[in-house]
Computed example of a mutant assay.
Amino acid sequence: MMQGLHHQQQQLAALLSAALPKDTTAAATASVTSSSSTTASTTLPTTASTPTVSTKSDENDSARLAAINSLHRAIIYPPNSILVAHSASFLAQGFCQLLSDKSYAVRQSAAIAYAALCAVVCSVPIGSSGRQNHVMLSSLVDRFIGWALPLLSNISAGDGTTELALEGLREFLSVGDVGAIERYALPILKACQELLEDERTSLSLLHRLLSVLTLISLKFSLSFQPHFLDIIDLLLGWALVPDLAESDRTVIMDSFLQFQKHWVGWDPWNPTTVS
C-alpha cells in the first residue's frame, strides 16, 4: 500500500514540477546577445523573433495551467484524500511559489488549487493522518487563511491579488466539510463585510464578494445569521448608487433571493433577530 502511495506522490510531484516556471534566463540572455551582435541588415529577423518567444511563452503557460488544473482535480477527488494529506507539505510549498508567478492566470489557478488543498486536508480525520501530521496540516490551513484574509484589505494595490484571495476563499469554503472548516467561516465573513463597506471596492470585486457571501449564507447559516441585516443594509447602499448600471443592480438584487433562508427566519418583532 505504501509503495502505491509513493508512486501516486511521484505523479503529483511530476505535475507540480510541470506547473512550476522553468528558468528562461539563459534563453533570454542568448536572445539579447544575438540581437545586439547583428548588423542593421538583420534587424527584421530580430524583430520577427519576438512573437516566437511570446508564442512559446503562451504555450508554456498553457501547459503549466493544464498541470495545475490536473492537480486541482486530483486534490478534490474524494478517494485521494489520504494521498493529498500525505502530499500536502510539498504541494503547498509549490502552490505558494506559484502565487508570485508572473502570469496572472497561473496565479489564479494556483490560488484555487491551494485553497482546495487546504480544504481537503482540513477535512481529513485525525486518525487517517496521525496526530502529529494533523497538527502540521492545520498549520498549512492557517497559513493559507493568513495569506488570503489580509489581501481583502489590500484593494489599493490594484494588482488583482484581492480577487485571487476571494476566489481562493470561495473554493476553500466550497470544498471543505462544514464541521471541519466552520471555525474559519466567521473570520472570512467579517473580512468580506469590511470589504463590502470599503468605498474603494470595485463592481468586479463586488461580484466575487457576493459569491463568497452567498456561499457562507447557504453553508454556514449560523455564522451568517447575526450579520444578515448589516450585510443587507450594505447591499442596499450599493443597489441605490445613482449611476450604477442596471445589470450590476440586478446582480445585487438577485443576491437577496439567495438569502431567502435568512429572510424567512428573520422576525422584526423579535429582539434576538435585530442587530
Results as ranks from 00 to 15, higher is better:
V124W: 01
V124D: 05
S100M: 14
D101K: 00
L91D: 10
N133I: 10
D159K: 01
P150F: 02
G158A: 05
S109Y: 02
V106W: 12
A115R: 02
Q132T: 13
V124I: 13
G146H: 05
A113T: 02
E163A: 01
S156A: 03
I145M: 06
L99C: 04
R143M: 01
A105W: 12
S128Y: 11
G160Y: 00
G160I: 03
R131V: 15
Q132S: 14
A119I: 03
T162E: 01
L98Y: 09
L151Q: 04
I155E: 05
S139C: 03
C118Q: 06
G94C: 03
A92F: 15
T162Y: 01
L99I: 05
S156W: 06
T162L: 07
A113M: 00
W147H: 00
A111M: 07
S139Q: 10
L152D: 03
I155S: 05
S139P: 04
I145V: 12
A116I: 10
V120M: 10
V120S: 13
I155F: 06
V141S: 06
T161F: 00
Y114I: 11
L164N: 07
V120W: 07
C122S: 13
R107M: 10
M136A: 14
D142I: 05
T161Y: 03
I155V: 09
F144Y: 11
V141R: 03
A119V: 09
G94I: 02
W147P: 10
C118R: 06
N154Q: 03
I155A: 12
V120G: 10
A92C: 08
K102I: 13
V124P: 11
L149C: 04
S128I: 09
A157E: 02
D142A: 12
L137N: 14
N154H: 07
L149A: 08
V124Y: 05
Q132K: 15
F90S: 07
A119H: 12
V121I: 15
H134G: 00
S153T: 00
L140S: 05
L151D: 01
V120C: 09
H134D: 09
A110H: 08
P125K: 14
A157M: 05
N154R: 03
G146E: 08
V106C: 06
P150K: 06
V106Y: 03
S128E: 11
G146M: 09
Q93Y: 06
A157H: 01
K102N: 15
L164I: 00
S139T: 09
A113E: 04
S89P: 08
L117N: 00
I155M: 03
L140I: 11
A157C: 02
L164E: 05
A115K: 04
H134E: 11
F95H: 01
L164R: 03
R107N: 13
E163H: 01
I126K: 15
C122Q: 08
M136F: 15
S123L: 06
N133C: 15
S153L: 07
S129T: 14
T162D: 01
A110F: 06
Q93I: 12
P150H: 06
G160L: 02
T161G: 01
C118M: 15
